[in-house]
Design a protein around this nucleic acid. Structure first.
Lengths: 340, 340
DNA sequence: CTGAAAGCGCTAACAG
DNA sequence: CTGTTAGCGCTTTCAG
């Protein structure tokens, strides 16, 4: 391994000078700088990051703590972070938290041991107080996909309520009046926010959500199937089902189609997240897009700036909007008797 | 930040002693060790990893270089690596290579600057010579999902040929005799190996693959659609389509179903990889499972052992087998007139 | 069994 | 404009 000393010796200068030219910094004579640069090239010298970290007490490394990398959503998130990190000459250090508070905290500690000062955390289970305390301790910590008012300037999140409203408006515009909902319970607050948004949109059009047509289950394909079965068993009529997320929507479509109801001709289905699977199911799923990559990139730069103490604006929030992606699972509602 | 000195002072010992108890190493008096441990607890002392790396010239960090984390396959791979890494008290450092040789090499260099000595590389485009040279330079480098004979002991890979054979045998057993193939060109050697395996199986049963029923395109859903269209246009009859991977299989199913042919009743479709999407499409896809997580975990430990110079066995290869996962896209072939 | 001391590779005053 | 020097936090001989 070639060190700064080797370069210094070969170039006939001191290590300080080498350090200066490496960082394009300070005052170095042109002739001298050129010479050193040449030697660096020749020797293929690369500064030892650990040594730098030791003296600077920080690294060009961003840590990401996420429940499970193998889930499409988090993979995409991580990918966005990595890209933004690379653009800023940062590396990405990853930890799965497996949905556990303790693992989450361990991961963060471990990141800190690595002098990693910019950290992105997707936390669903840790309580707010824990997170608030954490942000106080770690200036470069950014919470992703969750909003905690007291530390609003450290949260990068999505307007789930708006997503719900957009879905409602869109479906109403398509002529739907009888809605069913397939939602989740055990998660964070996202499900209820989305349903709330939907209700708001309905209310704006003098429509209501029938409580019997709200089915809850787990936030995956099976959950969607279970919930949709409950919907069918209720015997009530509906022309559109709004799912908490894409996976539940797909489960719902399965059950509907297995029961012989045509999607979208008879019943429309709409998802949320715009995961890759929405392009693999039949029909392709109309959904609200969760701009994960964009949010990831934004959060990355925010965390980097915060960790370097150079973020300009203070006290501002970082809220992103979901947007509609039309595919084939929503159709115009059958015209119902409008003459009463 | 509490350092080893703080602990030493508080415990009334030297830093050397603290270091010894931290590593459970060497000879330290029981009483003394207990005292130091207590102080470590109280002060919540955590060794600075960068300082350790500096003196040890290595880190408990495994680097993973992968084309694109947002793709399901690589997310799962990364997740497997992270889990195995954590079990070994290693951290995971990630880089997307974006399918480019130069980015790939940059990533590896960057990893080395971080004193990261255990590295996992999924490389599709770099040529063999480059990789061979790399493995010579980096003892802890393991190539994943590719086999290069000269460095066979450094490759963790899948028997694609066997996968093809298994598919062939399975389909033949199901009564299929007329096969179509939807495969890819631009990738690595995997596609041709899988097709070769299929051909072998067919040959074992005095069957042949009609070259007109082999369609090539890109290895994604659209590619599968394009290729399947070509198949349909050939006008030739087939009862099973074997796809290079799950995505192409899904594309093929789309086209088939849009053309009014029932899957699997009229035509069976089989994929490869067992990605999550296989559970989201209709019908759910029968496929060969690529045991990525298992391979990732294995490769991780291999890389760690190699980097620590403590892998026991030499000159052995690390070959994994795919296995069949039955779902709903393959059916018994319609009985054809066997009486000639 | 424990401490002193050197040094890993680099940066950042401080001199000159 | 450039060199000297003192560490960053930790490990590891080498003495004792």
């Amino acid at each position: 391994m070639v060190t700064i000393k080797d370069v210094a010796k070969a170039a006939g200068v001191s290590t300080a000078t080498v350090s200066r030219v490496v960082h394009n910094g300070g005052q170095v004579g042109d002739e001298c700088r050129a010479r050193v640069k040449k030697v660096i090239e020749e020797l293929d010298y690369r500064p030892n990051v650990n040594a730098q970290a030791l003296v600077k007490r920080t690294t060009n490394t961003i840590g990401l703590v996420t429940p499970k990398l193998s889930m499409s959503f988090f993979g995409t998130l991580a990918s966005g972070v990595e890209t933004a990190a690379r653009d800023n000459e940062y590396k990405l250090l990853m930890s799965n938290s497996l949905y556990e508070t303790s693992t989450e905290l361990d991961a963060i500690n471990s990141l800190r041991e690595h002098n990693c000062t910019a950290i992105l955390l997707h936390s669903e289970y840790s309580d707010e107080q824990t997170l608030i305390k954490l942000t106080k301790d770690i200036p470069g910590l950014v919470i992703i996909n969750r909003f905690i008012p007291q530390i609003g300037d450290r949260c990068v999140w999505l307007d789930n309520n708006s997503g719900g409203i957009q879905i409602g408006e869109y479906l109403i515009e398509k002529g739907h009046q009888e809605f069913a909902v397939v939602t989740s319970i055990y998660q964070n607050k996202d499900p209820e926010l989305r349903v709330q948004g939907l209700k708001t949109a309905l209310a704006n059009h003098q429509l209501e959500l029938d409580p019997d047509l709200v089915a809850e289950s787990t936030a995956n394909i099976e959950g969607g199937e279970i919930a949709a079965k409950a919907l069918l068993e209720s015997g009530k009529k509906f022309t559109a089902v709004v799912a908490y997320n894409d996976l539940m929507a797909i489960g719902a479509m399965n059950v509907l189609q297995d029961a012989g109801v045509k999607v979208p001709e008879e019943v429309s289905v709409i998802g949320f997240d715009n995961l890759f699977v929405t392009q693999a199911c039949r029909p392709k799923l109309t959904t609200m897009s969760y701009p994960v990559e964009e949010m990831a990139a934004y959060a990355t730069e925010l965390a980097i700036n915060l960790s370097q103490n150079k973020n300009k604006v203070k006290n501002r929030t970082h809220l992103f909007m979901p947007y509609l992606v039309e595919r084939n699972s929503v159709a115009q509602a059958k015209v119902v008797d409008q003459t009463r």
